[in-house]
C-alpha cells in the first residue's frame, strides 16, 4: 500500500494542516509537469491525487493512518446513541426527499415542476438543518485526534477504530444529505 503521507513528504500525523497537504500536492504536481514525457517516473499521478483527497478528509485520513499503523485492528461498527438519534431523523427525511425527487423527475412540464417548488424548499431546509447537526459531531471526533495518536503510541488502537466507525457513519450521512440537497437545488 502506498503511504500517502510519505508520498506528499508530510509527517504521519492525524493532525495534519490541510494547507500543508495542498501545498505539498501542488509542488509535487508541478514537478510532474503537464506532459506525460516530462513526468517523474517515481511518482504515479493518480496516487498523488488520491493522496491529496485522502489526507484532506479527516475520515479518509484516519482510515489510511490506521491501515498503515494497525492494519489488523478490527473494525468497530457500533453506533453511538447520539448518532442513532440523528440517524432516526435523517432516514425519513431522505426517504421523503427521494419521493419528491422522483415526482419531480416524472414531471415533464414547467408547471408540474413549479407545483413542487414549495415542497422542495421545505426539504432543502430540513436537510440543511441535518447537515448543521452533523458538522459539530464530526468536529468533536476530529478534536480527539491528538488523544487517539497518544493512545496509539501505547499500542491502544481502540479509540482510533471507534472514532473511524463513527466518522464513517457521519461521512456517509453527510454525503447522502449533500447529494439530496444538490438534487433539490437542481429542481
Amino acid at each position: 500500500m502506498t503511504n500517502f503521507f510519505a508520498l506528499l513528504g508530510l509527517p504521519e500525523s492525524l493532525g495534519l494542516d490541510p494547507v500543508a497537504v495542498e501545498r505539498s500536492w501542488r509542488e509535487k504536481s508541478r514537478s510532474l509537469g503537464g506532459t506525460p514525457d516530462r513526468s517523474d517516473p517515481d511518482i504515479d499521478h493518480p496516487d498523488l491525487n488520491q493522496a491529496r483527497t485522502t489526507l484532506a478528509d479527516p475520515a479518509l485520513r484516519l482510515a489510511h493512518w490506521l491501515a498503515l499503523r494497525a492494519p489488523e485492528a478490527p473494525a468497530d461498527r457500533r453506533i453511538d446513541p447520539a448518532l442513532m438519534d440523528l440517524f432516526s431523523t435523517i432516514s425519513p427525511v431522505l426517504a421523503k426527499t427521494d419521493q419528491l425527487l422522483a415526482r419531480h423527475r416524472r414531471a415533464t412540464t414547467a408547471l408540474a415542476k413549479a407545483m413542487l417548488t414549495r415542497e422542495a424548499i421545505d426539504a432543502q431546509l430540513q436537510i440543511q438543518e441535518l447537515l448543521q447537526r452533523i458538522q459539530p459531531l464530526k468536529g468533536g471526533i476530529v478534536e480527539q485526534f491528538d488523544a487517539i495518536e497518544e493512545a496509539a503510541g501505547t499500542g491502544d488502537f481502540q479509540p482510533a477504530t471507534r472514532a473511524l466507525g463513527q466518522l464513517k457513519f457521519l461521512k456517509r450521512w453527510e454525503e447522502q444529505c449533500r447529494e439530496r440537497l444538490l438534487s433539490l437545488i437542481a429542481c
Binding site: 412540464t109 414547467a110 408547471l111 415542476k113 413549479a114 407545483m115 417548488t117 414549495r118 424548499i121
Partner: peptide, 24 residues
C-alpha cells in the same frame, strides 16, 4: 396543443415559484 399550453402557463409557473419563495 401541449406546447401551446406549456407556453401559456409559463407565467403561471413563474408565479408559483415566486410565491413559494416569498412565503419562505
Amino acid at each position: 396543443a401541449n406546447s401551446a399550453l406549456d407556453e401559456a402557463t409559463q407565467t403561471l409557473a413563474a408565479i408559483l415559484v415566486e410565491t413559494a419563495f416569498s412565503e419562505l
